[in-house]
Simulated assay, not measured.
Amino acid sequence: MTVTVRDLRPDDRADVESFAHVRHLALPHILWTPDAIVHRLAHTHPDARFRSLVAEEDGEVIGSAQVQLAYDSPEPGQGMLNIYVRPDRTHRGAGTLLVRASEEHLTAHGATKLLAWVLDEPANRAFAERHGYRASRSAHFLRLDLTGKTLPPLQSPPPGIELRSAADFGDDPRPLFELDAETTSDEPSDVETEFTDYETWVEENWKHPLLDRELTTVAFVKGRPAAFSVAWTDPATGRYATAMTGTARAHRGRGLAKLTKNASLHRARAAGYTTALTGNDVGNQPMLAINKWFGYEICASEVRYVRELG
Rank of each mutant, 00 (worst) to 15 (best):
E121M: 13
G59A: 05
A227L: 07
R92D: 12
A236P: 02
W32N: 15
E182M: 04
D281I: 11
L98G: 04
N280Q: 13
S102C: 05
L25P: 00
I30C: 02
I83K: 00
P122W: 10
L25C: 02
A123I: 00
D190E: 14
L27M: 09
R23G: 15
D197P: 11
T4D: 11
G295F: 13
R143K: 15
P122N: 08
R224F: 11
L309S: 00
R92N: 10
M1V: 00
T2H: 11
E199I: 06
V230Q: 13
H45E: 09
P225V: 07
D145A: 13
S264D: 05
T184E: 05
E187P: 00
T247H: 00
D172H: 09
R252A: 04
A26E: 04
L8H: 10
G160K: 04
E121T: 15
F195E: 05
T237Y: 06
H29L: 09
S52H: 08
A128T: 04
E104A: 07
G272Y: 12
F19T: 03
T4Y: 02
A243P: 04
F127L: 03
P157E: 12
G253P: 05
L27Y: 11
E129Q: 14
H208C: 11
E60A: 14
F169P: 06
F228Y: 14
A108M: 01
Y240I: 01
H45D: 15
H21N: 09
W117T: 07
A166R: 00
N291Q: 07
V38W: 07
V118G: 13
T183N: 02
L309T: 01
F50S: 10
L81N: 07
I298C: 06
T274G: 09
L144S: 13
S189W: 01
N205S: 12
R267I: 03
L259I: 03
H39W: 09
A20L: 03
T193Q: 12
E60T: 13
D190R: 08
H251G: 02
G255N: 12
L115V: 13
K258I: 01
P157V: 00
N124Q: 12
R137H: 13
A20Q: 02
S73G: 14
S138D: 15
L81G: 11
T237N: 08
S165L: 08
L163G: 11
R307M: 05
V38K: 08
A167G: 07
R307I: 04
E187R: 09
Y240A: 03
N205W: 12
A241Q: 08
G295R: 10
P152N: 00
F141M: 14
E178W: 05
P34Q: 10
